[in-house]
Amino acid sequence: MRTTKRALARAGVVAGGLGLAMIAATGGAQAYTYDGSDPSSTGCSSGATTVESATVKNSNATFGTIELRYSLACHTAWARLTLNYTQGACGNASAGYACANAEVIRNNDGRTYSCTIYQGQSQCYTPMVYDKGMTSFAQGAVDTALGTVITRTAAY
């Protein structure tokens, strides 16, 4: 069977279209090694460092710290939110407040993972994003009587 340039070009258009359809179906975010994995259970948290951090505060109070953690061994990043207090009642209408939460966001494609600090807890960390050759940032949110305080770290 003889293949022509035109047939190859058509095949390339079809394959390219299928690729775009797959990107659209997955929300545009590429799944890499370790995406969505737990830093502790994979061993990536061993030897990890805080590469960026920011204080979660408003003009009246300081609530905690949001950190962007990074594992050089795994080339992964994740967010860790630590409150200066134990989370009170949250997450339902009777509590009146949303629970504090953190997110890690990979800049290149928007892949995002989150965690929530529930009543009685003071810390959470997100699943990881792979980010070798890419950048990510961490963001923390705390609901207060004066509104929601959202703080993000610089990207790394």
Results as ranks from 00 to 15, higher is better:
Tyr113Ile: 07
Leu68Val: 06
Tyr97Asp: 00
Asp35Arg: 10
Val129Tyr: 02
Cys74Met: 04
Ala73Ser: 15
Tyr156Ser: 11
Thr135Pro: 02
Gly16Tyr: 04
Met128Phe: 09
Leu146Tyr: 12
Leu81His: 00
Leu18Ser: 03
Tyr70Thr: 05
Gly120Asn: 14
Arg10Lys: 14
Asn107Ser: 12
Ser37Gly: 03
Thr116Asn: 05
Val142Ser: 05
Gly16Trp: 04
Val56Glu: 07
Thr144Tyr: 09
Lys132Met: 10
Ala155Asp: 13
Asp143Gly: 08
Ala155Arg: 09
Ile117Gly: 00
Tyr156Lys: 05
Ala9Met: 09
Ile105Gly: 00
Ala24Asn: 02
Asp131Asn: 14
Tyr113Gln: 02
Ser46Glu: 11
Cys44Pro: 04
Ser71Gly: 10
Phe63Gln: 08
Ser53Val: 04
Arg10Pro: 00
Leu68Ile: 06
Gly16Leu: 07
Gly133Met: 09
Ser40His: 08
Ser71Trp: 01
Ala154Trp: 00
Thr86Trp: 06
Ser114His: 03
Gly64Val: 14
Ile66Asn: 06
Thr55His: 11
Asn101Pro: 00
Thr76His: 03
Thr144Glu: 12
Tyr70Ser: 07
Gly17Gln: 02
Tyr85Gln: 14
Phe63His: 12
Gly91Ser: 07
Gly140Arg: 02
Gly133Tyr: 11
Ile117Met: 04
Tyr85Gly: 06
Ala89Glu: 08
Val13Asp: 01
Tyr70Asn: 07
Asn108Met: 05
Gly64Pro: 08
Gly91Lys: 04
Val104Met: 04
Gly27Phe: 11
Val56Lys: 05
Ser71Ile: 10
Arg6His: 06
Ala77Glu: 13
Asp143Thr: 01
Tyr85Ile: 03
Cys44Ile: 11
Ile23Lys: 10
Ala155Gln: 10
